[in-house]
C-alpha cells in the first residue's frame, strides 16, 4: 500500500510489483475478515450447543438452539462466501444461507407451537439448579 502511495506522490505509474503487493495486502485483509466471521459463528454454534445440553427446561433449550443456530449459521456462511469471492460456489452458499435463514426460525416456531399445543408447560418461577445434596437425598 505504501509503495503505491509513494508512486502516486512522485507521479510514477505503478509497476506490476506494486500492484502485486497491494493485492497481497488485500488478501490478508480478506483472510482476517474470514477468520473473524468463522470464529464468531463457531462461538455462537458452540454456545447454543452448550445451552441445549445445560438449560433446565424444553422452552429454554429451544430458545438457546433456535437463536444461536440462525446467527451462527449465517456467520459461518458469510465467512465461506468472503473466502471464495465472486464465484458460482458463492452463489450456491448464498442460496444455502438464505434457505437456512428462512427455515430455521420457522422450524423453531413449529416445534415450540407443537409442544405448547400438546400441553408441555414451561418452567415458571425461579429455577434452582439441583445441588449434590439434593441428588443424595433423592437416592
Amino acid at each position: 500500500m505504501s509503495l503505491l502511495l509513494a508512486a502516486a506522490e512522485t507521479g510514477q505509474s505503478a509497476s506490476p510489483d506494486m500492484w502485486a503487493s497491494v493485492l497481497h495486502g488485500l488478501s490478508i485483509l480478506r483472510n482476517i475478515a474470514v477468520i473473524i466471521c468463522l470464529a464468531s459463528g463457531l462461538f455462537f454454534v458452540l454456545a447454543g450447543t452448550f445451552g441445549v445440553l445445560r438449560l433446565p427446561d424444553f422452552f429454554t433449550r429451544l430458545h438457546a438452539a433456535g437463536m444461536t443456530d440462525t446467527l451462527g449459521a449465517e456467520l459461518i456462511m458469510l465467512g465461506l462466501i468472503i473466502q471464495d469471492g465472486f464465484t458460482l460456489l458463492s452463489l450456491k452458499l448464498l442460496l444455502v444461507s438464505f434457505f437456512l435463514l428462512m427455515t430455521s426460525p420457522t422450524a423453531t416456531h413449529a416445534v415450540a407451537n407443537a409442544a405448547y399445543q400438546a400441553g408441555l408447560k414451561p418452567l415458571i418461577g425461579r429455577y434452582k439448579a439441583p445441588s449434590p445434596t439434593d441428588i443424595k437425598e433423592e437416592a
Binding site: V45, G48, L62, A65, D69, S104, V111, A118
Partner: peptide, 13 residues
C-alpha cells in the same frame, strides 16, 4: 420435543 429439537439442530450443523 427435546429430541426433535436436537435432530433439527443437528441437521443445521
Amino acid at each position: 420435543y427435546d429430541r426433535l429439537l436436537a435432530v433439527n439442530s443437528f441437521g443445521t450443523k
